[in-house]
């Protein structure tokens, strides 16, 4: 089981690094918002795997909050960009 957790966490971590590439490269601000959203998703996934590995449930309420915050954050940022484009 430990090996399984290790592999899963490694793959998620590699995916996170790949996503960082898109976050750095852009080219639109929207791409960055999307990449950040995906990064938060991966954080949630990795934390869930970690909780399962260590039989530790303290992080679970944090995951609920994180999921909601990611949603609100992405939507707000996308709206902001749309508004800014509209003013041009």
């Amino acid at each position: 089981m430990t090996l399984l957790y290790g592999i899963t966490l490694t793959v998620i971590a590699v995916s996170g690094i790949v996503t960082l590439l898109r976050l750095v490269r852009g080219p639109l601000a929207l791409d960055r918002i999307m990449a950040l959203d995906v990064l938060v998703t991966m954080t949630i996934a990795a934390t869930a795997v970690g909780s399962a590995a260590r039989d530790d449930t303290t992080a679970i309420p944090v995951l609920v909050v994180l999921a909601l915050l990611a949603f609100i954050g992405s939507v707000t940022a996308a709206h902001l960009i749309e508004k800014r484009e509209g003013m041009r």
């Binding site: 399984l4 793959v11 998620i12 995916s15 996170g16 898109r22 999307m34 995906v38 991966m42 996934a45």
Partner: peptide, 23 residues
């Protein structure tokens, strides 16, 4: 345990493919 052993790698694989698609 079997459920977890199946779902974790599958989920990680989709995470990775999603990241790959993003790039």
């Amino acid at each position: 345990d079997t459920v977890t052993a199946v779902l974790f790698p599958a989920g990680a694989a989709f995470c990775f493919l999603g990241a790959l698609g993003l790039v």
